[in-house]
Design a protein around this nucleic acid. Structure first.
Length: 155
DNA sequence: GCCAACGTTGGC
DNA sequence: GCCAACGTTGGC
């Protein structure tokens, strides 16, 4: 079992949107395609059913962790890449050789916001990828120790 | 809205 | 395969 951190901009998709979705399950992210090879490769190569992930809200007033999700469907082609005219249409992709993938996630629970600046304050977390300057990757692995430390802090 | 830090693109 | 130009991300 692996752990992940997945970013979403609240202007695009919020934890409440996830909460209000049927079965509290969505394609990540419903209206947006992940268009970064590193993030795609994580989904394709390293994610397993039942892996857990932090829902991280980014590019907003209070960036931070707001929930816990699980991976509920393994990587599959992102349908948005095939919709001509769509923002996430990719002419270089095809049904036979899809370039971009998604996974489904299911909400486990919302948690009280743990702000980015709080995360930064914990020496134990100083190597977290999300805290690295210039980090832009929307899906990053979380180490077992980091996951345990954060989830322990919640409880 | 600024801007640093990235990833991608494409000409060569 | 280099690298400048460009677009995007995301904290502030």
């Amino acid at each position: 079992m692996r752990y992940w951190l997945m970013k979403s901009e609240p202007s695009v998709f919020t934890i409440e949107d996830l909460e209000n979705s049927p079965l509290q399950t969505v394609k990540w992210i419903p209206t947006k395609g992940i268009r970064n090879y590193q993030a795609r490769n994580f989904m394709r190569d390293d994610m397993s059913l039942g892996d857990l992930a932090f829902f991280y809200q980014s590019n907003c007033d209070k960036p931070g962790i707001v929930g816990i999700m699980k991976i509920s469907r393994l990587a599959y082609p992102d349908p948005l890449q095939f919709i001509e005219g769509h923002k996430y249409f990719d002419p270089k992709s095809s049904i036979e050789k899809p370039r971009w993938l998604s996974v489904n996630v299911t909400l486990i629970k919302k948690i009280p916001l743990i702000e980015l600046k709080q995360l930064r304050a914990f020496p134990k977390l100083k190597s977290m990828l999300i805290l690295r300057e210039g980090n832009r990757l929307s899906i990053t692995p979380v180490l077992d120790d980091e996951w345990k430390f954060i989830t322990d802090a919640i409880n």
